[in-house]
Simulated assay, not measured.
Amino acid sequence: MNIASLLQQAAAAAAGAQQYPAAALYVVATPIGNLADLTLRAIQVLVQADAVACEDTRVSAALLRHLGLDKPLLAVHEHNEASAAQGVLARLAQGQRVAYVSDAGTPAISDPGAVLVAAVRAAGHRVMPIPGASSAVTALSAAGDTRTSGFNFVGFLPSKGAERKAALQALAAQPQAQVLFEAPHRVQTLAAELAQVVPQRLLSCCRELTKQFESIHTLPAAEFPAWLAEDAQRLRGEFVLVLHAAPPAAVEADEDAMPPEAERALRTLLAELPLKQAVSLAATLSGAPRNALYQRALALKAEG
């Protein structure tokens, strides 16, 4: 008996007795590198599906072959998601089960899927999440950040210009952990930027998660560029970066103090927004007291 048959039998034994409503979209998390991370419930959903909508039909075809499955594939990616959703809706209206998968990980998290899900819900059909691998959560679990009580998912930063600069300033102002994605050809640029804006914050560099050459290394952001430059192999693969929560001294200031991150965010926002709006957004981003931010904003306006 081959591996595909064994997987289908195991999936049926573990999840076959569950309910799989018709006329529903199943949002299925797929492995981020290691095929063994596909859940038995996800396999059973793919067995039951009448069609599979996917980010890239070539990637999903390979996954289905691994499972011994042959299903109609519907291309639903970032360039056609709104129009392609109509084809999925037509199938759901016929009572079909449609699974949606991105190339890796959980759909609609820095991947296509959110537009499709919204369209399906708006049409009155059910959306069934099938949880599994997520590179953001995987990286956080191995970062060992003992300070944070939550995290902010950033994903990929804007590629350039004022939008990127504003995103980096906002990142520096956030006291909780931040999760970023980066491609290998841009990681050195991001490393230099993080070393400049948050030099003392700890950073966990997670590369090729769940794959054969997985590596996880934690160091101050100021040391990140030099560490990357020491070995060309460190520039290969896909990156998930966890910027650890700010040290207590930066977030437990007294009411009248102004953390440097909050000051930077406030100055940036005041240059573009009315005072009250800038203060409100700076308070949300930095966690600094609104009253202190308001008084500081007045002082900055007075300085001209």
Rank of each mutant, 00 (worst) to 15 (best):
E214L: 03
V198N: 05
L241K: 09
E252I: 07
A245L: 10
F213E: 04
P225G: 11
A226R: 07
D231K: 14
D231M: 14
F224L: 00
P199F: 11
A249S: 05
S215N: 04
A253V: 06
Q233F: 07
A245T: 08
E255V: 15
P199N: 09
A222Q: 08
Q233L: 12
K211P: 00
S204Q: 13
E230P: 04
S204H: 14
L202E: 10
K211D: 01
H217G: 10
V240Q: 00
L235N: 15
K211V: 00
C205S: 14
A232C: 07
Q200K: 11
V240C: 08
F224A: 00
E238A: 07
L243N: 02
P220T: 15
S204V: 14
A253P: 01
L203G: 03
T218A: 14
V198M: 10
S215I: 02
Q200W: 07
D254S: 06
L203N: 02
T218W: 12
V242L: 02
E238Q: 08
E255P: 09
W227P: 04
R234C: 00
K211C: 00
E223W: 03
E238S: 05
A246L: 02
A222N: 06
V242G: 02
L209V: 15
H244S: 09
H217V: 15
D231Q: 15
R207Y: 06
G237D: 14
P248R: 11
A221N: 05
E223R: 07
T210D: 12
E214Q: 06
H244C: 07
S215A: 05
L241Y: 10
P199L: 11
A249H: 05
D256N: 14
F239A: 01
T218M: 08
C206I: 13
F224P: 00
P248A: 14
A250H: 08
W227E: 03
K211L: 00
R207Q: 06
A257T: 15
V251C: 12
I216T: 01
L243G: 03
A257V: 12
T210F: 13
A229T: 04
V242E: 01
R236S: 04
L241T: 10
Q200N: 13
Q212V: 15
V198D: 03
A221T: 08
A222T: 04
F224E: 00
D254C: 05
Q212K: 13
F239L: 02
A250I: 00
Q212W: 08
V240T: 09
L243D: 04
T218F: 13
A246T: 02
L202D: 08
V251L: 10
A229R: 02
D254V: 06
S215W: 01
R236H: 07
L228P: 11
P225E: 09
H217E: 14
P220K: 15
Q212D: 10
C206L: 13
R236T: 04
W227S: 05
A221C: 12
A246Y: 03
H244A: 09
P248L: 11
V198H: 06
A249T: 05
I216E: 00
P247H: 07
A229W: 02
A246W: 03
F239W: 02
A226F: 03
A249I: 03
L219A: 11
L235P: 06
A245I: 09
Q233V: 07
L243Y: 07
G237T: 13
E255H: 15
F239N: 01
F213N: 09
F213V: 10
L228A: 12
H244W: 11
P248W: 10
L203R: 03
E214F: 04
L241P: 05
L219F: 12
